[in-house]
Each structure stands twice: as structure tokens, then as C-alpha cells.
Design a binder for these strands. Structure first.
Length: 279
DNA sequence: AGTGTCGCCTGAATGC
DNA sequence: TGCATTCAGGCGACAC
């Protein structure tokens, strides 16, 4: 489910609920042995009594760093969501709540994931940095080390369609199906073009559109299609601003000529685009 | 090495 | 109404 903007919103929610005095983990409860991967052995013991020092994000991953070292690597998969019950607010168990953090202040943080494609792992020290996928992950699109020349260099020689290349987290981190479709539409580039064959001006435009769409989506609280929720249960709004995603058959916002948004399949995933303006 | 296909899971929407 | 099929925001194992 969640792509970079949604994960960023969740990260901020965790930061405001789990950081600070009195917010140490009183107990971690795991309601099953695994999600996509088995939970790290003895993770409950490793977390008990520990306090967080920072909540960072890398691509679609949340890195919850602990005081005195160590980090939780948290991924929401396709259907994961995190619900925060503040101190004094009663936790109400939901189907598919797999991991529960009970905080010293009485609050509860529940990790819910119906499809169980998400995961939660504990790494000692800074060892997660050398582990995959972080070791070979592409640049943060909203960071200082992402720009047109960097994008061009990473796409150089790639024969795969630009749509598929942008979904590759080794090229750019954090993009998923929604925001790739939206960014390509913004740059008026066909998803079918060979990734390594874009003109310099197109790469420039694309890098800018990637940053722009992600920034706007974060400002709108992310996109809520089915499972995604804010940590207070609220919905994102950016789904109302999609130009092409999930709009097959509708008219393209850039087309005065009554052209229609089409859906095609690339690498097994739906791509939405306007053949008239994306060339 | 780079690229495409498939499977992992549940649940919602659609088709018959 | 009920059952089968299809599809979904991600990722990685595998085959070529």
C-alpha cells in the first residue's frame, strides 16, 4: 500500500506518540510469530523498557531508532497501518492487529496488516545500514542528493520502460505505482519509453515532477485507497487529486480534446496514462 | 547484470 | 443469494 508520502505521514504520527519522556516501551506483544518474515527472535525482550531516540524514514521504510543503540525496521507492505491510542484512550482490538506496543504512559501503538506483507525487524546498533535493501537503495527523492543529473545517471543504459525503472527502489527510493503514474503524467512522458532514452530536458522535468507530486501528496496527508489510514484513524486526501491513477476511461485533465485515460499492464502492474499527452 | 513472471496473503468488487 | 474470479498501494525468489 503505502508509498513514500503515506509512510512519511505515519512516521510523523509515531514521532509524536512514541518520542519523549514517559514513552518508553513497557511491553511489546506479538500476536503471531511472523508477518512477511518471522519477527526477530527475542524482539519482545530486546524492546522491553527501551526508549526511542528518533523516527526516520528511508524510502518506504520507517527506522525507529532506540536510545543506547539498535533500531526497528518497520515496513507496512501493501495493507499495513498503524493506529495510535493515546494515554487515557482505551485500546480497542481490531482484526489483524499483529504487534502491540504498550507505552509507559499508558498509550498503545497497534500494527495492523490484513495481508501480512509488512514486517517488523530488530537490528542491533547501526547494522541495518549495511543490510539489504538499505545498502543498495537509491537516493531519497526529496533529499539533497536527488536531482536531474543523478536520475539521468541511474537511468543510463536501462532498456526497461521508464515506468518499471521508477518502481525499482535501487534507482529512486520510495516511489510506488500511484506516484510513478502521476509523475510520468506530470512530465508528459509515456510510461512505455525506454528508461535510458529520455532527453536531458525530460529527465529534468521528471525529477521535478517526482519531487512535486510527493510534496503535494504529503501535504494532503497521503492517498487513502482502501487500507491506508493516519495513525489517528483519519484518511488522506490526495486520492482526490489523482490525474491518471485509477481513472481509466475518464478524461485526462490536460487534454481539451476529450481523450481518455488508458490502463495497460507493465511488469504485471497496472499503468494509467494519457496516450495523447504522454509521448 | 538486467529483466519479466510468479507467489506471498486477505478482502473488496465484479461476474455469472 | 451464493460462489468463483479478479484485482489491489510491495517485495523478492526465480528463470531466462
Amino acid at each position: 500500500m503505502p508509498e513514500l508520502p503515506e509512510v512519511e505521514i505515519v512516521r510523523r504520527g509515531l514521532e509524536s506518540a512514541m518520542l519523549g519522556p514517559g514513552r518508553a516501551v513497557a511491553r511489546l506483544t506479538l500476536n503471531r510469530p511472523d508477518l512477511r518474515y518471522p519477527f526477530t527472535p527475542f524482539m519482545e525482550r530486546a524492546l522491553a523498557g527501551r526508549a526511542f531516540s528518533a523516527f526516520e524514514r528511508r524510502g518506504k521504510y520507517i527506522i525507529a531508532r532506540l536510545q543506547e543503540g539498535g533500531a526497528l525496521i518497520w515496513h507496512l507492505g501493501m495493507s499495513g497501518s498503524i493506529r495510535i491510542y493515546k494515554s487515557g484512550e482505551a485500546y480497542s482490538p481490531a482484526l489483524h492487529d499483529h504487534a502491540l506496543f504498550t507505552l509507559a504512559d499508558g498509550g498503545t501503538v497497534a500494527f495492523n496488516d490484513p495481508r501480512r506483507f509488512g514486517f517488523l525487524l530488530y537490528y542491533e546498533g547501526d547494522s541495518w545500514r549495511e543490510a539489504e535493501p538499505f545498502a543498495s537503495m537509491g537516493p531519497e527523492p526529496l533529499g539533497n542528493d536527488f536531482n536531474a543529473p543523478v536520475l539521468a545517471a541511474r537511468l543510463a543504459g536501462r532498456k526497461s520502460p521508464i515506468k518499471t525503472a521508477l518502481l525499482d527502489q535501487k534507482i529512486v527510493a520510495g516511489l510506488g505505482n500511484i506516484y510513478v503514474c502521476e509523475a510520468l503524467w506530470g512530465a508528459r512522458i509515456s510510461p512505455l519509453r525506454a528508461a535510458g532514452q529520455l532527453r536531458e530536458s525530460e529527465t529534468e522535468d521528471l525529477a521535478g515532477q517526482i519531487r512535486a507530486v510527493l510534496t503535494r501528496a504529503i501535504a494532503a496527508g497521503g492517498s487513502s485507497l482502501r487500507d491506508y489510514r493516519h495513525t489517528d484513524g483519519g484518511l488522506g486526501c490526495f486520492q482526490h487529486s489523482f490525474s491518471v491513477y485509477d481513472r481509466e476511461g475518464e478524461s485526462c485533465p490536460a487534454c481539451g480534446k476529450g481523450c481518455r485515460i488508458e490502463r495497460i499492464t507493465q511488469a504485471g502492474r497496472s499503468t494509467f496514462y494519457c496516450p495523447a499527452v504522454q509521448t
